[in-house]
Nucleic acid binder design. Structure first.
Length: 268
DNA sequence: GCGACAG
DNA sequence: ATCTTGTCGC
């Protein structure tokens, strides 16, 4: 707990807003990578193909939401099988504040990325999917952007619920889907009142009515981000995020049992 | 003043 | 995030 759930000091909030606006200046909103998506093999083209995609997520300890397990997984895009995974149980230093998720979750996730990069691991992801929004955010700089800039890696933000921003609401999204009901689109752009396209709502599973919200994090375009998300969806949530969620939950569960002395030995 | 508010 | 079983449907 954080001092009986007392609110964050207003001064700290100002600091956070300043950090966001400073980091935002480094944000790249276009494709900035050497690989290509898909299996197109062009003659004489020696460029790389997107092969390793990462996913990160946190699970919280229900008795104390300041205890969390952070997990990084890397999947092979072609098979969607896990080729790398690492978890870390930590005590979070700040509570969740809407719009400032990164200050709670980014530090641990960066550690996991740094650890993998420092060991020059061959499966270090070429792209990272993040459980949380990218530019679909009150300051246009959500967790996916934050992580992308600090780790200097292309990132995609995946929201499982809509963060109401720039006039966007669930009802507007629902209406937009029903609008072209005949063509039964599985994806619609999220254009805010400002006129900017902040992301897209995607019905990733056939016949599902609950969309996921895709927005760019760093060094990628929305169109390419959407292509990759579609390629990595076996279920509603992309496998990267889904597996990171499953593994972090499992790891936390095992840690809890050991902590309570109900298990001996190393079951992790 | 009241509600809304990623995870 | 987390609390949580069965149930309706392909």
């Amino acid at each position: 707990m954080f001092q009986g759930d007392s609110p964050i000091a207003p001064e700290l909030l100002n600091d956070w807003i300043e950090v966001q606006s400073k980091l935002k200046k480094k944000l790249v909103t276009e494709d900035d990578f050497k690989w290509k998506v898909g299996t197109k093999i062009e003659g004489g083209d020696s460029c790389q193909v997107l092969k390793y995609i990462g996913g990160v997520d946190l699970s919280l300890w229900k008795e104390d939401s300041s205890v969390a397990c952070a997990t990084l997984v890397v999947l092979e895009l072609k098979t969607l099988e896990i080729v790398y995974q690492d978890s870390s149980v930590v005590r979070l230093s700040v509570p969740y504040v809407p719009g400032f998720l990164a200050f709670r979750e980014a530090p641990v996730l960066l550690e996991l990325l740094d650890k993998m990069k420092a060991s020059s691991h061959p499966f270090y992801p070429q792209l990272l999917m993040v459980d949380g929004n990218g530019i679909l955010h009150p300051q246009g700089f959500g967790l996916a952007c934050h992580l992308g800039v600090l780790a200097n890696i292309p990132t995609i933000g995946i929201g499982k619920s809509l963060h109401h921003v720039d006039g966007l609401s669930k009802s507007t999204v629902r209406e937009r889907f029903e609008m072209d009901g005949n063509s039964s689109q599985d994806i619609i752009p999220l254009v805010g009142d400002s006129g900017q396209t902040l992301g897209a709502a995607l019905l990733s599973t056939r016949g599902s009515s609950k969309p996921i919200y895709v927005s760019i994090g760093h060094r990628i375009s929305l169109a390419v981000a959407i292509d990759i998300v579609k390629l990595s969806c076996k279920y509603r949530v992309p496998e990267t995020i889904r597996q990171a969620d499953i593994k972090s939950r499992q790891y936390l569960q095992n840690s809890r049992l050991i902590f309570k002395g109900k298990v001996t030995g190393n079951a992790l």
